[in-house]
């Protein structure tokens, strides 16, 4: 876990530095007691110090088993992103059914008919609930609700 924690802490530090850098590009005209830059700079400064403290603490610890990321987590994340990209193109119902089918496979379900039935039913039921009952406008495709 130690290796992973070091990497994540370093990533957080990188984010804080980028954040601080872009804080400097906030344009200020009227000089207030505290302008729009001060608070972000303060927070990112504290963040960087905290990350350093965490790294120092980690260095003292003895390392244990390496924490590998599983392919299934990554597969699910990729599916999620694809789902988002497809939704405006295919519409809610179709993209949700596709995502559900993919997700159920990633979870280890082997039976295709069951997978497809669950995927389609979930998609249609949630569409009915949100779009029909509660009046939420969900993305549609050129095919209408499908």
């Amino acid at each position: 876990m130690k290796r992973a924690e070091q990497w994540v802490t370093l990533a957080l530090m990188a984010v804080s530095v980028a954040y601080a850098y872009s804080a400097f590009s906030i344009k200020v005209k009227l000089d207030d007691a505290i302008g729009p830059r001060a608070f972000p700079l303060l927070v990112s400064g504290v963040m960087i110090v905290l990350c350093l403290l965490n790294l120092v603490g980690l260095a003292r610890k003895s390392g244990d088993e390496p924490a590998a990321l599983g392919w299934s987590e990554m597969a699910m994340t990729v599916l999620g992103v694809v789902y988002c990209v497809l939704m405006p193109v295919l519409g809610y119902v179709l993209s949700t059914a596709l995502f559900m089918a993919g997700g159920i496979r990633v979870m280890g379900e082997k039976r295709w008919p069951l997978t497809l039935v669950v995927a389609v039913v979930t998609s249609l039921v949630s569409w009915g609930l949100f779009a029909r009952m509660l009046g939420v406008t969900l993305p549609t495709s050129p095919l209408g609700i499908l």
Binding site: L90, L94, S141, P142, L143, G144
Partner: peptide, 13 residues
Amino acid sequence: WIALLAVVAIAVS
């Protein structure tokens, strides 16, 4: 099929 249906739908609209 999806592509075909999409083309038809766009033409109709």
